[in-house]
């Protein structure tokens, strides 16, 4: 069953265009010029239950707008969203009961309370029964080790600790769907590792559907099988990460180091560079595997070393961003 269905979703903002200079300022005061900005432009997708999906795109692509509409805190101009069959624009309070949301750039925790008190507050607001609350807290403490700072006021927590607290707070009521808007932003290596481990574990143990927006490609590589790339309000790519890599970067490079300057030609690989006894071959993944190529070459000549170069995920994403629909 699909956890989330989005059909022809569109969001337009009406902005007042500000004139430049004093005359412009006066003019826009008297007769404001309205401009319509289409932040999300007719996007459709569906996400099955229990999947971790990355929602990525450059700044201002419409990711956050889409996430906000899915949470019910922004109304779509057109189209429809269903979260477990319910429309967040119409049944906001019911939808948010089954949602966990974390915005990396702002906290949901009460600034002046101890972390534990913030959790208690969530327990009351979401009406979580004691058994579930304690069990969830225990499970999450095992992954994130929050008990060491649970009695610290939120304002005194480090960013990494606060982020862990935010994640726990978002998952206390066992939501079926978890939205994470840049959850690893500004965190150190250790912090990122903890957050990723948490997302993986929660998804495995509870089958939570996770939607993640991020600029951190490490997050995507380690967590998501599926990727939705959005640019200028439109979906430019939607599919498995591996498929995307295959499609955008169908070729790999093989760098072979020979013992001498005698090198081998291969009909399924093209030589794209040679520097003395180091030769770079480019081959299509669909035609031959890297291992096959190394096998063939080493049959015909003695080789010292061989390295396969993958196209970096950063480059793939950059190519995808660059393309329009």
């Amino acid at each position: 069953m699909d956890a989330i269905t989005v059909k022809h979703l569109t969001k337009e903002y009406r902005l007042t265009k500000k004139g430049t200079g004093l005359t412009g300022a006066v003019r826009s005061l008297i007769r404001p010029q309205k401009v319509t900005l289409r932040a999300v432009d007719d996007i459709s997708f569906s996400i099955p239950e229990g999947e971790i999906t990355a929602f990525i795109g450059p700044n201002g692509a419409g990711k956050s707008t889409t996430v906000k509409m899915m949470c019910g805190i922004l109304k779509p101009t057109g189209g429809e969203i269903l979260i477990h069959g319910k429309n967040p624009a119409k049944e906001r309070t019911q939808v948010v009961q089954s949602l966990g949301v974390v915005f990396g750039q702002r906290t949901q925790l009460a600034w002046d309370l101890r972390l534990g008190e913030s959790f208690e507050l969530m327990k009351h607001i979401y009406q979580i029964d004691r058994g579930m609350y304690e069990e969830n807290l225990k499970i999450m403490d095992e992954i994130l080790d929050i008990s060491q700072f649970i009695d610290t006021p939120v304002r005194q927590l480090s960013l990494g600790q606060r982020m862990r607290g935010d994640l726990v707070a978002a998952m206390l009521h066992s939501p079926k769907v978890l939205f994470l808007d840049e959850p690893t932003i500004g965190l150190d290596v250790e912090g990122k590792y903890a957050i990723r481990k948490f997302i993986k574990e929660i998804n495995r143990q509870k089958g939570t559907t996770v939607i993640l927006t991020t600029h951190d490609l490490g997050d995507i590589e380690q967590l998501c099988k599926r990727l939705i790339i959005i640019n200028k309000g439109k979906i430019v790519e939607d599919g498995a990460l591996d498929e995307l890599i295959d499609r955008i970067a169908p070729c790999k490079n093989l760098v072979v180091e020979y013992y001498d300057e005698n090198y081998v030609q291969h009909d399924k690989a093209q030589i794209i560079g040679r520097n003395k006894n180091i030769v770079t071959y480019q081959f299509r993944k669909s035609k031959i595997t890297g291992a096959g190529l190394i096998c063939d070459i080493s049959d015909r000549a003695k080789i010292k070393d061989a390295t396969i170069q993958e196209t970096k995920i950063d480059d793939i994403i950059r190519i995808a961003y660059g393309r329009e629909c």
Partner: peptide, 13 residues
């Protein structure tokens, strides 16, 4: 000012 209205609206209350 701080944009926490959004997070307040996420609560089912």
């Amino acid at each position: 000012e701080q944009g926490t209205v959004a997070t307040d609206l996420l609560k089912p209350i």
